[in-house]
Design a protein around this nucleic acid. Structure first.
Length: 256
DNA sequence: GTTGAGCGTT
């Protein structure tokens, strides 16, 4: 397979835009996102099943569903797609997803001015929502700030908002991210793993992967044996969605 | 008394 252009649109009925592939025939998610900011993947309607299918995404690289991309129009996936899917939900077909997402976690605040104090941080971040704690990390001997700290909010919505933007604090741009280390007993819930409830016995690992890849790159699917009516789906990156109910009727297994 | 990518004394 060689370099080509694939047709990508925001919606099946929209005018497609041609996006270049790489020399090996793959397409970089970053290339898609350059034209469609916020894109987290691609999907397409299978000519065979007439169902929407996710395009395989491995470490930011989109792979053609067959030997090549063909003439299909690929539709951009956005995180906000969840909201529309909510409208399609009904009790009989919903899959409940519990995730740590409702639970907040500490955020590391990078790039703090040397002079910024914990009170400064508290004052600043309180404008977003209720703050549980703030820390400015300091040298034990000198007491000088190390230029970073931590913050934790009461509400997950606040955390999402704060993580989604840069922050001007005392004259410097700062970033709030999920910290790397420290997976203490309090932290595993911010994992990339989501709990998928109300599974039926005939769901397979492949089908779950196929369905959930529209929300981001899936790195693992676990179905307990024997059957226990739930599964775990693990994402490559932190699962950034607000809603925890998904309809799978139209885009997942035909047997639901 | 300086600095500017990173990752948390309790």
């Amino acid at each position: 397979m060689t370099e080509c252009y694939i047709r990508v649109a925001e919606d099946e009925n929209e005018e497609p835009m041609e996006i270049p592939s790489e020399e090996d025939g793959t397409v970089l998610l970053s290339t898609v996102a350059a034209q469609f900011p916020g894109a987290c993947g691609l999907r397409y309607r299978s000519p065979v099943s007439q169902c929407m299918r996710g395009v395989r995404l491995v470490e930011g690289v989109l792979h053609a569903p067959e030997s090549d991309w063909g003439n299909l129009v690929y539709v951009v996936n956005y995180p906000k797609d969840n909201k529309r899917k909510m409208d399609e939900m009904d009790a009989a077909s919903a899959v409940k997803i519990k995730r740590g997402v409702q639970k907040t976690s500490d955020l590391i605040v990078l790039g703090l001015p040397w002079k910024t104090t914990e009170q400064d941080l508290k004052d600043y971040f309180s404008t977003f929502g209720e703050v549980i704690m703030v820390q400015v990390k300091r040298d034990a001997k000198t007491g000088n700030s190390k230029g970073f700290g931590f913050v934790r909010f009461t509400d997950y919505e606040t955390q999402i908002k704060v993580m989604s933007q840069r922050h001007m604090i005392d004259g410097r741009w700062c970033d709030c991210k999920l910290p790397n280390s420290k997976a203490g007993p309090d932290e595993p819930m911010r994992s990339r793993k989501v709990f998928v409830g109300r599974c039926t016995e005939d769901m397979t690992v492949d089908e779950l992967r196929q369905f959930f890849m529209q929300y981001g790159e899936v790195t693992d699917v676990f179905i307990p044996k024997p059957f226990r009516a739930f599964a775990f789906v693990t994402f490559f990156v932190f699962f950034p969605y607000k809603y925890n109910l998904f309809c799978v009727r139209h885009s997942f297994c035909p047997h639901i």
